[in-house]
């Protein structure tokens, strides 16, 4: 096993997927996906349902092993590494729609976040400072909070565990537009602090405002990559076909 990949380009991405093929059982979902998340950039991964966005993310965070292809973190091949190992090493993922443990209290949710190495007190401090509402509810079961508050809790974990790379899946799922806007404000802030972010979003327009690069996926392949402006023009045809 090679300890590190040779430097071939001067803009090596922090997270890179190369030729990823993935399948559930015998059913192929990804047919060779190439995707780079440059350091400090926000990459928006767009596309209609069933395009393979979430599967791409599962491969990136280690929850799913690809059939073929490579996952590189900071240029190093981590294909097949376990999700918990990657998480402990700074690759933080907030999965779709359920980034919290509903039957744990807010505080206990943050206890689980300490696996990254931070002290609970430090995590609590960051979380409650950014989201004062969570402090009020720290002994409440996460599942009994509103959708927006739950998503804030999930984001708080992402914030406080000091990630190098943040993967976000459908932050806006089932949330009111105002809350979504607020959440993306925070994403933008995190991005400004230098974290590389890969964000999957169905509501394309919402995310294009904060993205540096946008990628459209269709049927398990990357269809186009471009600046948000370029991609916005393509959106309607990809989504509504008109």
């Amino acid at each position: 096993m090679t300890p590190a990949q040779p430097v071939t380009a001067d803009r090596q991405p922090l997270l890179a997927l190369q030729g990823i093929r993935a399948a559930y059982g015998n059913i192929d979902v990804l047919h060779g996906v190439d995707l780079d998340v440059p350091r400090g950039a926000v990459v928006a991964l767009l596309g209609p349902n069933g395009a393979g966005k979430s599967t791409t993310l599962k491969v990136a965070c280690g929850l799913m092993a690809p059939k073929a292809g490579k996952v590189l973190v900071a240029g190093r091949d981590v294909t097949g590494a376990r999700a918990e190992d990657l998480a402990r090493r700074g690759l933080v993922t907030i999965p779709e729609g359920k980034g919290v443990f509903p039957n744990l209290t807010v505080r206990e949710n943050l206890v689980v976040a300490t696996y990254g190495g931070q002290k609970l007190a430090a995590i609590e401090a960051v979380a409650y400072e950014r989201f004062p509402r969570l402090k009020e509810r720290r002994n409440q079961l996460a599942g009994t909070m509103s959708g927006g508050e739950q998503q804030m809790l999930a984001m708080a974990r992402g914030l406080a565990s000091n990630p190098a790379i943040l993967l976000l899946d459908e932050l806006s799922m089932g949330l009111a537009p105002l809350v979504v806007e607020e959440l993306y404000e925070i994403v933008a802030q995190i991005a400004r602090s230098g974290v590389s972010i890969l964000v999957i979003e169905q509501f394309a327009r919402t995310v294009l405002g904060v993205a540096d690069v946008a990628v459209i996926m269709l049927n398990g392949r990357v269809r186009s990559i471009g600046t948000p402006q370029e991609i916005e023009a393509e959106l309607s045809s990809a989504y509504l076909g008109g």
Binding site: V78, L86, N162, V195
Partner: peptide, 19 residues
Amino acid sequence: RPPSPDMIGITSPLGRTDA
């Protein structure tokens, strides 16, 4: 066997400084 990051040289959490 799935490789552990330890085996490939990442031994501690990747923070921003590591990046």
